[in-house]
């Protein structure tokens, strides 16, 4: 079965998604598409965590961890791109 804190996390990740998207758009962050897909992978992980309780636990557990791995890789590339742009602001404009 699912746990209450997993439901809270799931609600938060979807409620904050448009807010984060709006601020990311305003910030015109370099690599924001990477951060967007990383956040989407994270939301996928939070969702599969809830689903794995009642439905196909092994499959959705695997999906959860794969989603986290994908999110991590995308965050790493996104952070690298953002920090490179911060070091060389002229190239990022």
């Amino acid at each position: 079965m699912y746990q209450d804190n997993e439901i809270v996390n799931l609600l938060l990740v979807w409620i904050l998604a448009p807010v984060i998207g709006l601020f990311a758009h305003r910030a015109r962050m370099p690599g924001r598409h990477l951060f967007f897909w990383a956040y989407a992978a994270m939301a996928c992980a939070y969702t599969t965590t809830v689903i794995e309780g009642p439905v196909l636990p092994d499959l959705f557990d695997l999906l959860e961890h794969v989603s986290l791995a994908v999110a991590g890789v995308l965050f790493a590339i996104g952070c690298h791109r953002l920090m490179s742009a911060a070091r060389h602001p002229e190239e990022s404009r």
Binding site: H65, A69, G72, C79
Partner: peptide, 23 residues
């Protein structure tokens, strides 16, 4: 596969943290 995904996730978030900290 789960352990492999965890390894990738740990390394990737570690790299992300390192990239941010050394900037």
């Amino acid at each position: 596969a789960v352990v492999l995904a965890n390894v990738v996730s740990t390394v990737a978030f570690g790299v992300a943290l390192g990239v941010v900290l050394v900037a």
